[in-house]
């Protein structure tokens, strides 16, 4: 990959990676740090990576870095332990997309990540599996369970009947 291709990767995928990480951990500063670390890592091995594979490489590297950060700070949020009662009051008047993003925060980190990769980036199950290190079947399971959890959240908050 050339310098020009590297810069293209920054312009083209920088915001995508940031969005994915930010929505996964809900911390803009840490998301910025992770994206910067990821691109620094990419820059160090810029000559070894082909441009056509850089997007997948970026997401994989950023995801792994994010998991490291989450494990390090023990910030994994479980559905069972997440207190979302404070959100219910404002959900009825919110846009569905916003509500879904808030519902996303109630999901476990892995489910959140695979759904974001699926919805934001349109990755196939196999590609999501390569990024997250899961099997294709596991990816499907996490996505389907995540969808059900999102729907249950909407019903629970009376956004949907």
């Amino acid at each position: 990959m050339t310098v020009r291709e590297y810069n293209n990767a920054v312009r083209e995928y920088g915001d995508h990676v940031y969005r994915f990480i930010y929505r996964s951990i809900k911390d803009s500063h840490r998301a910025c740090d992770i994206v910067q670390d990821t691109y620094e890592k990419l820059w160090r091995c810029v000559t070894e990576i082909e441009y056509h594979a850089v997007k997948s490489w970026l997401f994989t590297s950023a995801y792994n870095r994010m998991i490291d950060v989450i494990r390090k700070e023990a910030r994994i949020v479980h559905v069972e332990s997440y207190d979302d009662t404070s959100l219910y009051a404002e959900e009825k008047n919110s846009d569905l997309n916003e509500v879904l993003h808030r519902a996303l925060e109630t999901l476990p980190a892995v489910q959140r990540s695979v759904i974001l990769l699926r919805d934001y980036e349109g990755y196939q199950y196999r590609e999501i599996g390569e990024i997250t290190g899961l099997s294709e079947a596991q990816v499907k399971t996490y996505i389907f369970r995540g969808r059900v959890a999102l729907r249950n959240y909407l019903v629970k908050t009376s956004v949907w009947q």
């Binding site: 920088g14 915001d15 940031y18 969005r19 994206v35 997309n97 879904l100 996303l104 974001l116 919805d119």
Partner: peptide
């Protein structure tokens, strides 16, 4: 309908 659309978030 349970599709997440990217918000206008920029780094």
């Amino acid at each position: 309908q349970l599709r997440l659309h990217p918000m206008d978030e920029r780094m």
